[in-house]
């Protein structure tokens, strides 16, 4: 059975979804699935390892990154829909010495 390439969006307020599939490379189509099970296909931008996140919409630099319906940091660059989101384009806002 072919592994389903799912990106789970766990709260309606989220602007990222987590991919639980292997072999996701630039251009792979995945299904963004929300809590209700509604799906939307998107082409991934970047190579995304298992358990990592993609943007479910365009996010501007400085905007909060939302997961679990809560703020998990801020975008440190403009992020396009489908793009890989991790420490290269988002930053933590807590536990820092400079804020």
């Amino acid at each position: 059975m072919e592994e389903r390439k799912l990106a789970l969006k766990v709260d309606d307020k989220d602007n990222v979804a987590t991919i639980f599939a292997n072999g996701i490379i630039n251009g792979t189509e995945v299904e963004i699935r929300d809590k209700k099970g509604d799906c939307e296909p998107v082409n991934v931008i970047g190579d995304v390892p298992y358990g990592h996140k993609i943007a479910v919409r365009d996010i501007q630099m400085g905007e909060p990154i939302m997961k679990y319906g809560e703020r998990i940091g801020a975008a440190s660059a403009d992020i396009r829909k489908g793009e890989y989101v991790h420490i290269h384009n988002m930053v933590a806002m807590r536990g820092r010495g400079d804020l």
């Binding site: 987590t18 703020r71 998990i72 991790h86 420490i87 988002m90 933590a92 806002m93 807590r94 536990g95």
Partner: peptide, 13 residues
């Protein structure tokens, strides 16, 4: 981080 957690906030939640 290798596992996909990008910030302490994400880990906490």
């Amino acid at each position: 981080i290798k596992g996909g957690l990008s910030s302490i906030e994400e880990k906490s939640l």
